[in-house]
Design a protein around this nucleic acid. Sequence first.
DNA 1: TTAAATTATTATGTATGACATATGCAAATG
DNA 2: CATTTGCATATGTCATACATAATAATTTAA
Lengths: 231, 231
Amino acid sequence: MKQLNLTTLTPIKYLTQVDKVEMSLEAYFRSENFQIGDPIPKEMELAEAMGVSRTAIREALSRFRLLGIIESRKNRGMIITRPDILNNMHRVMDPQLLDGATMKEIFEMRLVIEIGLADILFLRKTNANLKKLEQIVEKEEKTDKKPELVKYDIEFHSMLYEISENKTIQRFQKLLMPVFDYMNNELHVKSQLPDTEYVSHRVLLNVLKNGTPEEFRSKMKRHLLNYFEKV
Amino acid sequence: MKQLNLTTLTPIKYLTQVDKVEMSLEAYFRSENFQIGDPIPKEMELAEAMGVSRTAIREALSRFRLLGIIESRKNRGMIITRPDILNNMHRVMDPQLLDGATMKEIFEMRLVIEIGLADILFLRKTNANLKKLEQIVEKEEKTDKKPELVKYDIEFHSMLYEISENKTIQRFQKLLMPVFDYMNNELHVKSQLPDTEYVSHRVLLNVLKNGTPEEFRSKMKRHLLNYFEKV
DNA sequence: TTAAATTATTATGTATGACATATGCAAATG
DNA sequence: CATTTGCATATGTCATACATAATAATTTAA
């Protein structure tokens, strides 16, 4: 029995000419198999070929420039460029504009990633980055001021991402930070665990040093459990 | 000692007026704390306030429309809308344009997520979705044609994401699919494990049914290990 | 003849003015 | 009072002109 899927259906909205031009251009770029650095037709040629004004073409091209798919220099014309897959996400990562459900899902995604990262961390940990991690923990243990604790908490987890050496994951995490920040500050998410079950950064560090990935995951899960219960 | 971070530095590029207008507008939207549905000033007002032509304003606004941050209706003016954090990523997920290093990182991210997902799967599995998963496995076991096997492989892993009930993670995975597809087809990524160590979808299913998250992670890791070694 | 300086050409960037169109409001009409 | 009509308004689209920077072509000078 075919399973019905409605997620790919987008709500009907009025399509302006620029929207259509944009879609046409995207299809064109893909179909023509452009490579990085390849020149694309000039604005007037596109306008004539599609039967619209240069203005409409330019508004559409402006969008592609935002996405980093094309670049233009005076007189040299426009060329295809390598887009950055995460470059524009930060623009829409405004907790003010996101709904609660999405924020929860984003938060859950963070948990999934930090738990799933364990194997890679054990694969790529070095004395150098373990030492950096230790320094953060030490600074954390020397203070009890809330803002500093928050700061070191962020530093600790960021350092874990850094140890993974995966720039894409790192950048993804940085993008999501405003959401975590908002959830921590505005929504006053607080630990619901008795203190005896709390796993500190020090514990995580020690497990990463001398333990196993399985152990690390289990501790990390507990470390993040107060959130986990919520979502 | 302050750690130097160069990732936030973007390469210098020539900023057009439209780029500057875009940045100004973004800052303006954030600073004024606009809520969903709030109207924004009309084009002419913005143009006059910023001392540029309506054309420049419109090109910048066109970008925000692409991002889903604003929406406009004739005469009613423009309003702030709820952006979709993943809506535009598919446009830049063109394996043709991505570099190998990024694709590898994206692939690694998939592995991280699928391993990290284990706890949530055990939390949210139901008889209904386990049955769906079983049907996929059964269909897979009945064929030995390559294209069908690929299809069921995708279906199996997609179903896991579905069981997680996290729409954001699901959509993220769908976005990344072109990259996986490309890596499988074009790069001819093949298993490097002896057959005896291979973990089938059937095994994963059984563990999900009767095993533990830890066990599932370990099996999933092995299931994906041929990739894991590579990255 | 060759190198430097000048000029012309070209394609993108910006500005302006005009008109189309749909929407909401107000006025007019029955 | 309900319906219709007309008007004002803000966005959508187009055409045109000019600015600007990079390249090509041409001229000038040693």
